[in-house]
Amino acid sequence: MSQSTSNFAYAMPASITDTVSLLSQASSNGVRCQVLAGGTDLLVQLRSVDPDPRTIVDIKSVPEVSRVEVSNSERGVFIGGAVSAATMTHHEGLKAILPGLVEAAYLIGSTQIQGRATLVGNLCNASPAGDTIPALITNQAVCEIHGPRGARSLPVEDFVVGVQKNALEAGEFVVGVRMPHPSARTADAYLRFIPRTEMDIAVASAGVSVTLDDAGVCSAARVAIGAVAPTALLVPDAADALVGSTLDEASLAAAGRACTAASSPISDKRGTAAYRRKVVAVLCERAAASAAERARAR
């Protein structure tokens, strides 16, 4: 009953500096602290698996975390830590250049959840089935992290280190994610499989980004898969199967096989391992076909 001395607290810092100092102070005092953005994962956890008291640090008053920047310059695309899925799906600039990432954000939960859930929260929650993680990886997204030792950047594929484990250290939080503005004739797509049409967690998923040259040949590709391993995976073999091809059926199928080969899924209430291995290939093929079609249209 050691918990009896600790209580819940709620704080709403107004700057990055204040947030970092709140988080660092708490951690050095041994007080459990958790960042709140959309809250759609945090509140479910509080309700069920992890009801213990903690200090909840609501970052929504920090100006930087509410920003969406879309720039053709080196700054690229920035999506702040408290930007909701709904904000992304309503953002015409984002939809135009990163349709796959916006699709992934759109797939997080219901309309109600969309109104609160954030891209970065989905990332930090680090679920193997998190929808936005493969889509962020295919788009070469990098986390911008602030902490007691200043700022640092970490590619998304390195940020998620295990099942519901991320690379944040004590006192740190993610201010936002940044990714390059896609070049001409580059497009992405994201697909997941769920038993219903909505309201489920991905059984398997695939994000694909392809770049076409003037002849319509794939000159660059990134493929990432989700829900088939402890973390979302970048699958270079699948990308290699696409590069140099016209993204014809045979190369899509080869990319699919590479995804199956890269996966190491489990059997659980959402699907069997055998099923996930098969379906991840189908999703990769279909997402690649969709990305290709988009790239051709650009």
Binding site: P195, R196, T197, E198, M199, D200, I201, D268, K269, R270
Partner: peptide
């Protein structure tokens, strides 16, 4: 869906999948 110990694994509307409007 039960585990080997007889504990239901899907005791919620997320994984006990009643049809939703879009289905």
């Amino acid at each position: 869906v039960y585990d080997a110990d007889g504990v239901q694994q899907n005791a919620g509307f997320l994984d006990y999948r009643v049809p939703v409007a879009s289905d």
